[in-house]
């Protein structure tokens, strides 16, 4: 049975969600504040979390950030009365998988929850990390050993591509097709940019696998 955690401080809405989701065939746990919500979420036996942002004792954003930091990848759908573009952007960038402003249609909520459940819960870190190297795709900040590294947009895109599949070897063609818009025959551009990245991050940051391509390995 699919198990849903609802973190919502408003008793009436929480009850409506519990009754409605139970009727839709889900098992539902309700947490009335951020602290309880985080504790239940970290136990990790839920398939999806419905999270309010304005919560007593611990904010929803804080719950979300802590979950991702603790490598709990349960899909999170944020429900919030704060529905401006900035609010939505922030919520998603912190690690939410979906964002639904209040008031919402219950049928839409259920459909979105089903969509999240289809995707499963693979690790989807908001901030990519391989060894001591981190990359935040939202802010485009790259850090190595805790120090900021200045990269161009293209260099960041190339590094992101490699860091999304750490330890895996990516061919030059794959990298070229995903990082450069214009697909040409010239694969040298990949070599050139790999050399730029090595200059800034150190030789060992990107390994060359002879005859195949490149990979990033955590140290």
């Amino acid at each position: 049975m699919v198990r849903i955690l609802v973190v919502e401080d408003e008793a009436v809405l929480a009850r409506a969600l519990r009754r409605g989701l139970q009727a839709e065939g889900f098992a539902v746990d309700v947490a009335p504040d951020g602290e309880t919500g985080l504790r239940l979420a970290l136990e990790g036996d839920h398939d999806v979390v419905v999270l309010d942002l304005m919560l007593p004792r611990r904010s929803g954003i804080d719950v979300l950030r802590t979950m991702r930091h603790e490598e709990v990848w349960t899909p999170v759908l944020v429900l919030s009365a704060r529905g401006t573009d900035d609010d939505v952007t922030h919520g998603l960038d912190v690690g939410a998988d979906d964002y639904l402003p209040k008031p919402f249609a219950f049928s839409v909520l259920v459909a979105r929850l089903r969509a999240l459940l289809r995707r499963g819960a693979p690790p989807r870190p908001a901030v990519l990390q391989v060894g001591t190297l981190t990359l935040d795709p939202a802010s485009r900040e790259v850090r190595q050993d805790g120090r900021d590294v200045e990269l161009t947009t293209r260099e960041t895109a190339l590094l992101e591509q490699l860091m999304r599949r750490p330890g895996e070897v990516l061919t030059k063609i794959e990298l070229r097709d995903h990082v450069w818009d214009a697909v040409g025959d010239d694969l040298n551009v990949v070599e050139v940019y790999v050399s730029y990245l090595r200059r800034k991050l150190g030789r060992e940051a990107i390994e060359t696998v002879r005859g195949v391509g490149y990979r990033v390995v955590g140290r």
Partner: peptide, 28 residues
């Protein structure tokens, strides 16, 4: 924003009750 919260609770309660009339206990 403050008005939206009770409205959201009302709307969801009503929608759940309409979709699943059996979901709520008596008078709840």
């Amino acid at each position: 924003h403050e008005l939206r919260s009770p409205i959201a609770a009302l709307r969801t309660s009503l929608e759940v009750a309409r979709a699943h009339p059996e979901a709520y206990e008596d008078a709840e």
